[in-house]
Nucleic acid binder design. Structure first.
Length: 462
RNA sequence: GGUACUCUGGCAGAACGGUUAUGCGUGGGCCUGCAAAGCCUAUACAAGGGGGUUCGACUCCCUCGGGUACCUCCA
């Protein structure tokens, strides 16, 4: 499959081989995750699910940054410890992303649990003379890495003249970045250079190399990480190994809110917890996949609603397939065609929008046949393909128990009887009751089927 | 200011040097006791502005303009 590589500004072939190694820069655990995190992580979740569907074994590593100024500051204001803060937000992370139906990564390494690896890494960089110890920490010397700027397409001279923060006297060059920061404020670790804590970028280099090796297939994250985070990772890692680091750099576009940047100062952060309450996982996933991952996407009520309509069509289709009785096929659906379209869309730089188009064509075709009473013996084939696509997209129809089914069938039977007797008011009362249970009845010609609708809280606010 | 990405019909969003993308929305219809959902059907000849290359450009080039991101907090 083809993936756009930020480093080369061109699509690169990703061979779907037995083992594919992916490192995704995760979150700094100082606050609840928001819809922007969700988009990046859902995009990678779909990539991973697709590769696995094609038979690859994916080693998927996603870190937690659990040592950072923001965590320490939050701990101070709450009179708590950095550990308590990060533990709390890691817990929330899993609450949110499990609810979003994101598959768990192979491992979630934490910076604080890899201090040894980080220090070994720094030792070697110092020994190779690309890093130096100064008054307040250990720094990487950007001048020693001639290719610095190759990922973000920045020119070192321009960066230097554009430095806008006060120059740190302890650095040899304003562009140098910290590998280790000296500090006496907890959390700290002893090191050969002095007590302190790791800088931000070093953990990802140390941990990705530990878990995935010196070179691996894909390294990714949000677009905003290109500079300085990923640029610095390349400088450190390639100085360390003298090998090409990631083969493909994949970056996901930002989420804006009604056209504006999401930021604390604007007060427009949409936490995952919040949007889940209103819209549920399936609609959020459809929303996040509705545009190409590399482009920005705007979070608006209108778009969410559009995806709600689509989700209802999917539910409808699913239950049509569940309820359809095996009979003669008068007309078939070209399942292979939509299946191939779906796959080739994803093969082409993970074009989820186009893949969704193929998926919805299958849904629409199925609904059409159902409406015409022509669903027949190939129902299982359609259902299997639909489930495959839904699995890759990470969409999930909630399970329904046998007991619930029996109860629904009984109620439908009673309603049918009342309808035959033309007691429509009483019949409608049963229908209303089912509606309260989120069961919608569909009266087709001569038969009634039911659809278990996911409750979407936002819907009642329209 | 610099760099990168981007600009398609009311909205979302693709492909492609020359054919209707598609979806949502909207109008009409079918089904139904009614409704909802679904289905059918109709509807937008759209490409930020201006140049150029070409027999022909939404697609390539130039230029002007808008947007988003980044320029050591950021998914």
């Amino acid at each position: 499959m083809k993936i756009q590589d930020t480093l080369r500004s061109a699509e690169q072939e990703l061979e779907i081989i037995d083992k594919i190694r992916i490192y995704l820069c995760g979150v700094t655990v100082y606050d609840d995750s928001h819809i922007g995190h969700a988009r990046t992580i859902i995009v990678f979740d779909v990539l991973r699910r697709y590769l696995e569907n094609k038979g690859a074994s994916v080693q998927f590593i996603q870190n937690f940054t659990d040592v950072d100024d923001k965590i320490i500051n939050k701990a101070k204001t709450e009179n708590s410890t950095a550990n308590q803060i990060s533990a709390r937000y890691i817990e929330n992370y899993f609450r949110d992303f499990d609810s979003l139906n994101v598959k768990r990564a192979t491992a979630y390494p934490k910076a604080t649990e890899h201090i040894t690896e980080i220090q070994e890494f720094i030792k070697k960089l110092i020994a190779s003379n690309v890093a130096y110890v100064s008054q307040n920490g250990v720094y990487f010397s950007v001048a020693k890495f001639p290719e610095y700027g190759k990922l973000s397409k920045k020119n070192i001279d321009e960066l230097q003249s554009g430095v806008r923060i006060e120059v740190d006297e302890n650095k040899q060059d304003p562009l140098d970045f910290a590998l280790w920061k000296f500090s006496n404020e907890e959390p700290t670790w002893d090191s050969p250079w002095g007590k302190g804590r790791p800088g931000w970028h070093i953990e990802c280099s140390a941990m990705s190399i530990k878990y995935l090796g010196e070179s691996f297939e894909i390294h990714g994250g949000g677009r905003d990480l290109i500079f300085p985070h990923h640029e610095n990772e390349i400088a450190q890692s390639e100085s360390f190994t003298t090998k090409q680091f990631a083969k493909i750099w994949m970056h996901v576009g930002m989420v804006t809110i009604n056209g504006e940047k999401m930021s604390k100062s604007l007060g427009n952060i949409k936490t995952i917890n919040h949007v889940l309450q209103n819209w549920g996982a399936n609609i959020i996933r459809l929303f996040c996949l509705s545009g190409h991952y590399s482009k920005p996407i705007d979070y608006t009520e209108e778009l969410l609603r559009e995806n709600l309509v689509k989700w209802r069509q999917i539910e409808m289709c699913y239950y049509e397939l569940i309820h359809s009785k095996l009979g003669n096929v008068e007309e078939t659906i070209d399942v292979e065609r939509w299946s191939n379209d779906f796959d080739s869309a994803l093969e082409s730089d993970l074009n989820t929008h186009l893949a969704l188009t193929a998926f919805f064509t299958l849904v629409k075709e199925t609904n059409r046949l159902a409406a015409e009473g022509k669903l027949g013996t190939d129902t299982n084939k359609i259902k299997a393909e639909m489930e495959r696509m839904m699995d890759i997209l990470g969409l999930k129809i909630p399970e329904i128990t046998l007991k619930e089914k029996e109860r629904i069938d009984e109620m439908i039977y009673s309603r049918e009887k009342l309808r035959h007797e033309k007691k429509f008011q009483e019949a409608d009362r049963i229908r209303d009751k089912l509606n309260d249970m989120n069961i919608e009845l569909i009266d087709h010609k001569g038969r009634t089927i039911w659809v278990r609708k996911e409750r979407i809280n936002a819907e009642s606010n329209f």
